[in-house]
Nucleic acid binder design. Structure first.
Lengths: 186, 186
DNA sequence: CGTTAACCTGACCGTTCAAGTCAGGTTTCA
DNA sequence: TGAAACCTGACTTGAACGGTCAGGTTAACG
C-alpha cells in the first residue's frame, strides 16, 4: 500500500504552491520548491513536467519564471494527483473504477477478497477524492498561525519591498498552461 | 497503493482454508489450493512457508498431508496478513504505527501531506484490522447459498465415502504449528 | 520396505520499475 | 550577451517482484 516518492514529491510541491498562493506568491521557481522540500531539482523538474502536461500546474519561462497552479485550489483533488502519478487507487485491479481489469478468480460476485478490497478502495478514494489543495492549505495555515510558527514563502525581500510600495505590482506575466503538444490529432 | 501478488495469494489461500474449515475440511493439500486459485505451486509453497513461520497456518507432512489454519478463524485479521507479507499499511512511513520512520519534512506537526496520509492509513487499518477470516468466510458462504452456487471443497469423493461409513473417521493427525527453528538463542 | 505423495528450504533468475542523473536544448530578463 | 530559469528525452542503477529449480525430509500405504 505504498505511495511512491514521485507521488509524495508531487503532492508536497503542490501543497507548497497552494500555500504560497494563499500567501500572495503564486509563482515559485523550481529551485525554491526543490530546496524547501529537499527534493533533487532534476527529479522534481520531471515531476512538474508531468503535472504541467496534465494541466495541473502552469509555468512561466525565462528569468524570474517558475511554476504555479493552473486551476483554483479547490478544484485540485488529491485523488487526481495520485492517479496521475501512481496509477489507480485500488489495491487490486478488479476493484478499480478507473482501470478495472478482471482477475484470476472464477467468480467475482462471490470473491471474499474482492469484497474486502472494494471496501478498502472506497475508503481510500473517499478520502483522496474529497480533499482538495484548498482544504489542506487552509488547515495548514491555520495550524501554523495557531502555533505562532512563522509562515513560509514570505518572499526573499523582493515582495516585501512591494508591500511598502503598493500599486498593481508588476503586470504578472501569463503562464503557459498547456504544453505545446504538436500531436497529429485534429 | 498496490497490493502485491504475494499478498493477494496469501489472502486467497487463507480464505480458502477458512471456508474449507467451515465446511468440515480443515486440511487442504497445496496442490488443491494452487489449482483452485491458479497460483504456481512452487510460489504458493513459498508463501505458505512464510505464513507457517509466522504461526498463521500449520502443516501436516507426508502423504495425505496439507495445510490448515493454526488459529481460530476469528483471530486472524487481514491487517496481520498484509503486514507480514507486504509490510506496513501506511502509505508513507511517517504515519505508520508499526514501523514509524521520520520523513524529510522539517516539521511533522504542521505537514499537510502527513495529515492526509494519516487519514488514509487509519481508514485502511480500520478496515483491515477489523475483519477476520471468520467474517469473510461467513459472508462468502452465505452469499454462495443465497445464490444457490454449489459449495467448493466438497472433497474428492474420499470424504464423501466417509460420510456413508460413519465412525470416528481417521484420528486426524496433529499438525506442526511451528517450524523446528534451531535458532541459537537460549 | 520401498514407492509415492506430500511438505521443507534455500538458492537462483529474469524482468520491471522506482528513483535519480545527465546532457543538452529554449525562453526571457537585465 | 549572459545568466537564470524552464523543457525534454535519454540514460543508469539498484532493488523488488514474481517466479523457478533442485534437492531435501516425512509419513502413509501396498
Amino acid at each position: 500500500m505504498k505511495l511512491s516518492k514521485r507521488g509524495e514529491y508531487a503532492m508536497r510541491a503542490l501543497i507548497d504552491l497552494a500555500i504560497a498562493q494563499a500567501l500572495g506568491r503564486a509563482l515559485l521557481p523550481l529551485s525554491e520548491l526543490s530546496e524547501k522540500e529537499q527534493i533533487p531539482a532534476a527529479f522534481l523538474e520531471q515531476i512538474l513536467f508531468q503535472l504541467r502536461s496534465a494541466g495541473i500546474v502552469a509555468s512561466v519561462r525565462g528569468k524570474h519564471g517558475g511554476y504555479c497552479l493552473a486551476k483554483p485550489t479547490d478544484q485540485i483533488r488529491f485523488g487526481e494527483i495520485i492517479r496521475l502519478i501512481d496509477g489507480p487507487l485500488a489495491p487490486i485491479r478488479c476493484v478499480s473504477q478507473v482501470a478495472y481489469a478482471r482477475c484470476t478468480c472464477p467468480d467475482e460476485a462471490h470473491c471474499g477478497l474482492r469484497m474486502l478490497m472494494l471496501d478498502v478502495r472506497n475508503a481510500v478514494a473517499g478520502i483522496l477524492d474529497k480533499y482538495t489543495l484548498a482544504d489542506v492549505a487552509d488547515v495548514t495555515l491555520r495550524k501554523l498561525r495557531r502555533d505562532k510558527v512563522p509562515s513560509p514563502f514570505v518572499p526573499p525581500a523582493e515582495l516585501a519591498a512591494l508591500f511598502d510600495a503598493p500599486g498593481p505590482a508588476r503586470p504578472t506575466r501569463r503562464a503557459r498552461v498547456h504544453p505545446v503538444v504538436p500531436q497529429g490529432q485534429p
